[in-house]
Amino acid sequence: MSDEAQPLGAAPAGPRPAFGLIVAVAIFAALALVPLVSGVWGGGWLTSLAIRAMIFAIVAISLDLLLGHGGLVSFGHSAFVAIGAYATGIMITEGVYEMALILPVAIGAAALFAVAIGAVAMRTSGVSFIMITLAFGQMVYFALGSLAQYGADDGLTLWSAPDVFGTSWLASETGVYVTVLGVLVATWALVHAVVGSRFGRVLRAARQNPTRVAAMGYSVTRYRLVAYVIAGVIAALAGVLWAVHAEFVSPSLGSWQRSGDLIVMVVLGGMATRNGALIGALFFVLIEEALSSITHDWRLIFGPMLVLIALFARGGLAGLLDRVQGPR
């Protein structure tokens, strides 16, 4: 077994930029229509579902930067979501309602954590990297569960929505919806800008052959660490949004099962593809909701579905989409 296993669907991003862009714009447009549709059908359930799907999509896209483009299989990514969510929850509980203060704290905490554990984790590779990120994720999970004054294992309810520069923009569901959609589009655009940049090329080259990239004079560790911090900060931002949306945070946000779900979303959608993580996360949340409305035992259907996708749909759902579009 080699340490640098080739991820499935490892085609470089954007061999057909136009098609990928059209798909993304179509998805974002459909998401933008959801609040309008919910006025006629679905109501709060529909917007809430869409918000949940979008927040997961933000985290999944950030994880794909590590997983797909960087070849760094982080099994502790949900820890960053939990850090962002808890930064929000704790500050609101302590009477700080201003987003302009909460956001820098959440981002700063996530960045610090990413630098600290990233510096240790980057010393390892392959399966050791998977396990060491899991270890740090579990430490965050248990640490949050020990915060007695902030609800410990039971979690923390946010009794008030944060202000945005003194306005109550995030107090309405529409405000939250627009914000989450905006962050999703921005994340998508940012990650693709990063991947397409010189930085992204070095990162992807280091996935395929770290020795050679190092021989060319690049510090592989430094590039990977920067990618790790970027992904961690984006995930923490999603955590902030989660806290605002759910008005409740708990350690389970950072559980290893959640990190596993995130990996499944990215692989399901297709790693290192233009829209794979986005499609994977939306599909995961929607199919879970759809199947669980049909039957309580929805996992009997979902489980084999994952197996079949892993066995037969190389490149995930985005790969299927490419095949539908015809051979290259």
């Binding site: 499935l8 692989v267 035992d297 996992r299 994952l306 892993a310």
Partner: peptide
């Protein structure tokens, strides 16, 4: 046996699916 030659993440995805299925089957 269809997964030995595949990369680690395909294995994770498929075996995760097996967990979901069998946990639920046992519950049923």
């Amino acid at each position: 046996r269809h997964l030995y030659a595949r990369d680690h993440l395909s294995q994770v995805l498929a075996t995760f699916g097996v967990i979901l299925f069998l946990n639920q089957l046992v519950e049923v």
